[in-house]
Each structure stands twice: as C-alpha cells, then as structure tokens.
Amino acid sequence: MLVFAASDKGGTGRSVTSSNVAYRRALAGDDVCYLDFDFGSPTAAAVFDVPGASRGVAAGGLHSHLQGRHTEPHRIDVWAESEHEELRYRPTGSGRLVLVPGDRDGGEFAIGKDTVRRCVNLFLQLESEFDVVVVDLSAGRSYAVDMVLEATAQPELARVLSRWLVFHRWTHQHVIAAHGLVFGERGIVAGGVERGHDKGALRDSIRFVRAAVPDPESPLWAHVPLAQSEWMRKCDRDLTELAAELDLGYARLLGKIPLEPVLQWREQLITDEDVLASKVAGMPTRQALEELAAALVDEEAWERQ
C-alpha cells in the first residue's frame, strides 16, 4: 500500500505524525518504508534520529535518484542505525522499518518524463517489498505532489492501492486551506483527474487528519475560567460545522492528534518509553497515533463516504 502524506501549510506536524504512523505500523508487524519526498526540506531522518542523515544523506538520496544521477537510493534501516534508545532494538514481532532519505541540501526540482518513470519504478519496487510505503510530500502545491499524481496515474500503478492522508491544524484557516488543497481548482483531485485519475476513486482514497487539536474537555483546561472554556467549546463546534460543510467532516476523517508539546518541539517518534516511563508524552497522544495507524489499514474507515 502506498500512503501519501500531504498538507497545505507547514507546521501541521505532517512529517512527525506520518513518521509515527510508520513506526506504529512496523510495531504492529508490517514491513514499512518511509520516503522523504519533502524535497525542499529533506529532514525526515531527524525524526527517526539517524546520525549523519538529519538533513538528508551526502550521496545517493532521493533527489539524485529521481533525477537519474544515482541508480539506487540510499536506504537506512532504522532499527539498526537509529541512535534513539528505544529504536535500536527491533522489538519481537515487529516488521522492518526503512527510511529512504533525500540528499543533504537538496532542493525542489522540476519534473520531467524521466523523473516520473523513475518514480513509478521506485514505487513498484518498494510496494512489492513492503506492506506500507509512506511518502511524505512537501507542503502545499508542489512538484512532489504533481509527480506522485502523475506516477500513480500510470497503468503500471493502477492496481496498486494508494491512500492519501491530508494533515491540517484545527483552525479556521487550516480547515479552509486543506479543503482547497484537496478539492480546489488546482487541488489534488482536479490535478489527479487532469492526469488520468478517476475522480470518484481518487476522492475516496483521501482522508483528513486533524493535527494539534486542543481538547476542551481535557483536564489541561479544567482550571481555565468558565467564559474561556465556553469560548473554546464554541470554537470547536464552529470548526466542526465548517469542516462538515467543506466535506472534511466525519466521513472523511481518519484521525485526530491532540496538541502535544513533544510532537511540536521534539519532533520525534513517540515511544512507549516516552509515555510510560519518562512521561514526556501523553497517553492520549500515543493512543491517537495508534488509532491512526490502525485506521490506515482498516477497510471500514476507507469505505465511508
């Protein structure tokens, strides 16, 4: 399965959340591969705490592979190479977790026929090797989004299951922006249809993930003045209404990630150690990530329309 992680704006926690989903799928026993397609800022390796690769790798990353300068993109076995205490030992029953990083100091590049062909080859190869291939795309309308839409429209990829996760923060502006990225005139659906995708099928393969969602019922806010908590509830209701109006409502919702300082500031995988022992991350966050990872492969969640 190919999973494309997209967002309209930066700061949605797209990279850190999708990395965590990849990690959770691997813990559940899937072989997982994570591709850093954030070409303008290839920093996914930092989330996985891989030394020497936090800003991409020196040679043979995705930039040089897709532009034909290097035949095989560099792969990092996260269980073997991560410096993260918890990641260094592959837990029993877990699947492989492989990171394919970008080039250090790589930038966005224009997409041609050759780039798309290499991208198709890469997806086909990884899909035949891994259960889940997470592709972390640059924010907004980018060449990366164009390229994967073009690649997945090719006949060779027609029978490969593709799913899209669109991340947005739980604010008025972000909800509108996420709607635009997916349904807008130059959005993912329109762009996909232009490249030969079936409109209905593409729409049905897209789900939204709300990130950094403050929960008005959380004990965190138990001591705020009544007026403020009333206001928070109203905002949440208004946003829920707006989301439903814009087709970002329950049917297209795959998960909600609470506002979590560890995700915001440390930008790393949240391990059980973080939650249970050092308690730097909250139980609800871990649970939300686990639910999102489960929903990713839950057919029912993808049949809702």
Binding site: N121, Q125, E156, R159
Partner: peptide, 12 residues
C-alpha cells in the same frame, strides 16, 4: 525495472 514494468505483468 524495464522488464518488471512490462504490460504482460499484473503487478501483483
């Protein structure tokens, strides 16, 4: 890569 993309293959 070239052979594996051949249209004879159903990619499954």
């Amino acid at each position: 890569d070239e052979v594996l993309r051949h249209q004879l293959l159903d990619q499954r």
